[in-house]
Simulated assay, not measured.
Amino acid sequence: MITALRRRGLLAGSLALTAAFVLSACGSSEPSDKGKESAAGGSDLRTVKTAMGDVQVKKAPKRVVVLDTAELDSAITLGVKPVGATHAGTESGFLPYLPKDKVEGIKDVGEMMTPNLEAIAALQPDLILTSKIRHGDKYAELKKIAPTVMTETTGHPWKENFQLHADALGKTAEAKKAVADYDAHTKKVTKALGGKEKAAKTEVNVVRFVEGADIRIYGKRNYISTLLSDVGVGRPAITDKAKDGFSYDVSPEKIDLADADVVFHSTYGDPTKAKRKQTLDSALWKGMKAVENDKAFAVEDELWIQGIGYTAASKILDELQSHLTK
């Protein structure tokens, strides 16, 4: 009998406690996001369409973490200093073309392909920017930390990706200015080359020596190719053989296939393991018309290949003009 009464008493207490929580939630001085939306007459969240579906993000994110070089370039271009970012390659540090004052104080959260999720969570971000091709397999974990905006891929669609980054960051006005500045810059370079017709008669190739891989002759579907296209220079026929438009890979014994009026070359990783010296010392390389005419130029891989954005593009365009007008 006593046990039954005790059970009924516990049940009654439980129901009373539940009711108290409900009433407390309804009358709380800390409203939910929906409450804030109602009280403010509008939501402080926006819907952004991403490669992973619609994502709700703050109108003005304050604590942003970026997980690739393109996203870091976008943020810097738009006047946003992330609280955290990954680094490219095996060595710590952000790409050197970025202004030091713009990256100073950003927390390094690991190598680009293996970001430290604990370090990211510790920064308490309100937005994470990356791409599906880089971190699609980590999306479930990342979105638990903060709203995560992913583009489908990186590289060639960098202009479209930039617009998504700007939308997520609430910086569409700044994006318009960046695009306008870029368009004006490309026209300036084209004019310096003697106009569209003259520029088109100069065929340009971009070669990348890669540690542990074949040498890449870049095709027409990658970041650097879009800059060359916007300036209006010609591209050799070999670029049409690039796999998926990205690159046509060759051994040092076939490097002469990269010949053009002008050749830009960069190196990723250890130069020896990338077969750079072996190739540049070869008779095939030295016999190329670009080399014989002093039109083969070494450029920084961190800028020309890894940068991927409008801040990188501005510096590349300056270098293009300088080299092509020599």
Rank of each mutant, 00 (worst) to 15 (best):
V233I: 13
Y218M: 13
L257G: 06
E203G: 00
A19N: 04
W158F: 15
N293Y: 13
D230H: 01
T130C: 10
A88T: 12
I238N: 04
V80H: 01
D261H: 14
V262Y: 13
K273A: 14
K176H: 01
S229T: 11
V189R: 00
T18H: 01
A85F: 08
M112V: 11
E160C: 05
I215V: 14
K277W: 08
K100S: 13
D256P: 08
Y139V: 04
H156K: 15
V48S: 11
K176V: 00
I76F: 03
Y218F: 15
D281C: 11
P236Q: 02
T202R: 10
I305V: 12
S225Y: 01
G105A: 09
V55I: 07
S74D: 07
R134N: 08
N205R: 07
K36S: 15
E253H: 10
K132D: 03
S28R: 04
F297P: 09
A60Y: 05
T86C: 12
D294Y: 04
G35A: 11
L324I: 05
A175P: 05
R6N: 12
L324Q: 06
P61C: 03
N222S: 10
F246V: 15
P82E: 04
L11W: 12
Q56D: 08
K59E: 05
T151Y: 04
G53Y: 11
A313H: 09
P125D: 03
D301Q: 15
L95E: 03
V207L: 08
L257S: 13
D33E: 13
G136H: 09
D68Y: 15
P96V: 07
I316Y: 07
T18F: 08
K254I: 06
V299Y: 11
M150N: 06
R221P: 00
F246P: 03
S28I: 06
L95R: 00
S43C: 10
D214K: 13
V48C: 08
V66H: 07
G93P: 02
